[in-house]
Design a protein around this nucleic acid. Structure first.
Lengths: 246, 246
DNA sequence: CATAGTTAGTTGTACAGTCCAACTTACTTA
DNA sequence: TAAGTAAGTTGGACTGTACAACTAACTATG
């Protein structure tokens, strides 16, 4: 950051703090919210409003909006606010994804958005009535999105998949209690390939991130041990990836 | 991104595109530029100007500055421009690091910076005369930095170290021709721990990212094979990390 | 000119963790 | 009571690192 450089760039002398008078890009925050629903990875999208002057009227878009300098202490708080407004979830996994800024991404002018991505269990959310889940099949979304939100979503999917190879991130997509086969299924949904059962169990159990509860999941066959996330557990990083496909 | 939400947040009706009239945060780009020099990881820093109204006068800071909406097509172009201005390097490894935005990080008002990090070989650079290399010892910088640049730098160091565990990133810190022991040394400098010679060689050579040139590095002892990066090579991701310390 | 010193590079054994496949266990349903 | 199914275990093959000892190729030195 600086003020330095700017006055030089323009090649003319500016009064003190004159450099603050230059055109400022629009600043927004968008959130890519993932969950697992119906045995599939899903993302939360909203329909753009139709009002006059609104860009991409009625298109699908990521939840987000302008940073409110009077309300948002910082970017993460702004992202958490959006998440809360749309899903009611307050304490999810929330990670910064990156930022996208250019002269052309928003017809209203030079704009930059700070993108976050969140993982929540589907059953923990109560959606705002203009928000809906959309399934991601084959690693992509069917629909076209407003702005460059398609790029942002693609990056988020890639980041999620990449990290799932060597971290415990899917744990944040689980309900409070779950079985190891449940967790493995979520890994497989995100990665879109089957994993080895025994290697999976060894890895997860030796990572010390979940603990058994004194209950079993009962069903039409052998009961499965229920587990919960150990509290305060940061994501775990494994020293190997699962063996990659092909 | 949206305009939606904003008018609702404020609880009052706004004329068309009225939402664009709200206070906009300052938008800047900063670049964390790493190199290897004197057997040590170093970062490029500049001294802040002393002019009236300038925040953090004479403090050390990352190179960066305001996005110039008339000049910068997008954020990456802006970062590349900063890098070019300070080092003369045009084609480095340049990756987005993240963004930092809050009401308090800049005394001039709510501001958000988009941080990038770059890796360049030291000998490829010709520094601007207000820029200098500063060594990072023990994973930290001695000096305090302006703004939240200390946080940004710490994040960059952490990200670099983390990725070096399982990628070929250090290759971008090397001169055009180098030996395997040279490359291993750079890994060791960044990670701040010794690596196994034979495992290191096996991994790098089987990654198909470098190729031998028909020359040897001669010295006071056994000559070493020289290699160069295969052109067009994206960073390589290994399926294991080196065995982590302790 | 031989020998010591130093760094490049290889080899071999131990070990850890995945892959793959077969197996046992515990339950429901017919 | 037997068949079916999913949970969970076990063991051998394989891959790649850890560790350590080894060989190779050069310079410097007495």
């Amino acid at each position: 950051m600086a003020g330095e450089g700017r006055s030089k760039d323009l090649g003319k002398g500016l009064g003190k703090s004159g450099e603050l008078d230059f055109p400022r890009p629009l600043t927004t925050v968008d959130v890519v919210i993932f969950t697992i629903l119906d045995d599939s990875l899903q993302v939360l999208l909203m329909q753009r409003p139709a009002g006059e002057g609104e860009p991409f009227p009625l298109s699908l878009a990521l939840p987000g909006g302008f940073v409110d300098v009077t309300k948002d202490r910082d970017l993460a708080a702004c992202a958490a606010r959006k998440l809360k407004e749309k899903t009611g979830v307050t304490s999810p996994y929330l990670e910064q994804l990156g930022s996208w800024g250019s002269a052309t991404r928003d017809p209203r002018g030079w704009s930059a958005t700070h993108a976050y991505f969140a993982l929540i269990p589907a059953d923990a959310s109560v959606l705002a009535n203009d928000a809906h889940w959309f399934p991601i099949r084959g690693g992509r979304l069917k629909d076209k999105l407003a702005f460059d939100h398609g790029d942002i979503l693609a990056t988020a999917i890639q980041r999620l998949r990449n990290k799932v190879e060597y971290t415990s991130l899917p744990a944040y997509l689980m309900p409070p209690e779950f079985t190891l086969p449940d967790l493995q299924r979520v890994y497989e949904i995100v990665l879109d390939r089957p994993l080895e059962k025994s290697a999976f169990r060894t890895r997860i159990l030796s990572a010390d991130m979940i603990e058994p509860v004194a209950k079993m999941r009962r069903g039409p066959n052998r009961p499965a041990q229920l587990y919960r996330l150990k509290k305060g557990s940061e994501p775990v990083y494994f020293v190997r990836t699962f063996n990659p496909p092909e």
